[in-house]
């Protein structure tokens, strides 16, 4: 085992530290990895001092209540649409779908051709959506990383320059919600 292999496998163990025979042998003869291991042990000890976030019973009761309400509304809506679809059949669905598709297409053009003020309002509307399109996000982030060469993970919390933001915005199309 070389030092890099040893250090990597040591890091993987933090939280469940225990050495196998070849690691023990290596650490015995290699001061660098021995120090690395000791530091990891210390880190392990420190991190375990952290408190586990616990949800209080009162908080959980609130969540249950909200969840009940949401599920109730969801089921009623599902039931309503079921009755509706039974009553009016596929033709109504087709009409609604066509309408939605044409609306989405229209709003897509509007968002990025509108004035900046409208643009922000549209963004505010978009961010309330629940959609997550992982493949799309992956594609945008990859494009971003190729252009700017930064770690895609860091991008989420690092600060973007105006130029970088513009690039990102230009990649966002309506209907593709980057959130």
């Amino acid at each position: 085992m070389d030092c890099q292999q040893v250090k990597r496998s040591l890091s993987e163990k933090i939280g469940a530290l225990g050495l196998n025979l070849s690691e023990k042998e290596h650490i015995h003869i290699c001061a660098d990895c021995r120090i690395y291991y000791e530091r990891l042990m210390e880190l392990d000890k420190y991190l375990k001092c952290g408190t586990t976030p616990i949800i209080k019973e009162t908080e959980f009761a609130t969540i249950q209540k909200k969840l009940d309400e949401k599920i109730g509304r969801y089921q009623n809506r599902a039931l309503y649409f079921y009755h509706l679809s039974v009553r009016y059949g596929i033709s109504l669905t087709a009409v609604i779908l066509l309408l939605i598709v044409s609306l989405i297409g229209k709003s897509g053009k509007d968002i990025y051709q509108s004035k900046p003020a409208d643009h922000y309002d549209t963004l505010l509307t978009l961010i309330d959506e629940e959609t997550i399109d992982e493949q799309y996000i992956e594609a945008v982030v990859n494009g971003y990383v190729q252009t700017y060469g930064i770690n895609s993970g860091e991008m989420l919390i690092g600060d973007l320059t105006p130029g970088e933001l513009e690039y990102l915005k230009s990649e966002i199309k309506a209907g593709d919600i980057f959130l």
């Binding site: 922000y120 963004l123 961010i127 997550i132 989420l156 919390i157 973007l160 980057f178 959130l179």
Partner: peptide
């Protein structure tokens, strides 16, 4: 992650908005 992205985006929207 959705929430963090949302926060990120919100941070680019003027505070007046």
């Amino acid at each position: 992650v959705n929430h963090l992205r949302r926060q990120k985006l919100l941070s680019f929207i003027p505070i007046s908005k």
